[in-house]
Amino acid sequence: MIKRFFGIAGLLAGLIGCNGKPPLDNPSRGSIVIAADESFQPLVTQLTSAYAGIYPDVHFDVVFRPEQEAINMMLHDSARMVFTTRLLKPNERAVLDKRKIKGANEKIATDGVALIINKANTDSLITMTELQSIFNGQTKLWGQLKGGNQNTPITLVFDNNNSSNLEFVLNTFKIKDLKNIRIFTTHSNREVIDFVRKNPSALGFIGVNWISDSDEPLSVELAKDLRVVGVSDKLNPTKRDDYFQPFQEDLGMLRYPLRRPVYILSRETHPGLGGGLINYVVRDAGSLIIRKLGLWPRIPYDRIINLTK
């Protein structure tokens, strides 16, 4: 009995460690919290699930929040790392500097904000100038656009008041005041899709990874009865080839105007589970998952196929 007691005590001491603290996580064992903007839910879910599938002693608690909330979670140590569309601002970087945390940031992919419309709306091409006019409040009706087939008000639909999709578009067009535009926010990218499917006058903005994975049944289902709008940055485009959609090649070749980077930001201070996930994402396996989702990986992984007769 005494031997058994000391055996258990020794095991507990080993687990706790010499300094009385739980052992640190490492790339193949442990549990961490990850925060991410909801527009990246399909991407983050597949990457973390694939990594955890390799290491059974790994657990990721993934929390989806609007981008600013997700970043704040990482800054205040409620999350180890965050998937985001931007680097930290100087005042945010100062929070980590004050704690002498160097952290890490890694660009992993190029993403696009997709514009979606109801299948009944045949006006599936738009220019950046026309979008600027809509966000400035000068263009209010679909009929005012070149090729518009209805005279209803344009309703802009986003997933959240503080989402990366909305912030990116407002920054792109330098919009400070939303009073002059007809805008509606839901609670998720999926709700944006549902809203657009039911409303022919809606113009929805979502993360393209929600509808770009042709091998994923949910992605295929969500893309039904929708049109993805082609966007041109030319002032007066003359042909269909002047417009581009937010899919892989046009993202990688920098042709789609509403493209944006995807970063992983981390506050990790030791070679831990967060670093293991980052290495996995930027290397071959993670790159293939990013490519499968229709985004453009930072380091494209070329698959070599040998054909024999």
Rank of each mutant, 00 (worst) to 15 (best):
D242P: 00
V157E: 03
T129F: 13
A50G: 02
I16S: 15
S28L: 10
T129L: 08
T48P: 01
V157L: 01
W210K: 08
D25N: 08
N161Y: 09
I289A: 01
I175D: 10
R190S: 11
G294R: 04
I126D: 01
S214R: 09
L203Q: 01
H270G: 00
V282T: 09
Y263E: 12
I175V: 14
S214T: 08
D302R: 08
L277G: 00
C18N: 14
E268H: 01
H59T: 14
P300T: 13
F64N: 09
D194N: 14
N26E: 07
I264Q: 01
G274T: 04
L258I: 03
S212M: 03
A94S: 05
Q41F: 14
R227Y: 07
D123S: 15
F5A: 14
P300D: 12
L235D: 14
D61P: 06
P200S: 10
Q138P: 00
F5R: 14
D25C: 01
K119E: 09
W142K: 09
L295R: 08
A79R: 08
Y280Q: 02
V196F: 02
R86A: 13
D225N: 07
F247N: 07
V44T: 13
K174S: 09
T238P: 12
I305K: 13
L254S: 11
R86D: 15
I54M: 13
T152V: 15
K174R: 04
I206W: 00
S212H: 09
L141H: 04
N19Q: 13
P27C: 02
I175P: 02
D213G: 01
F60A: 06
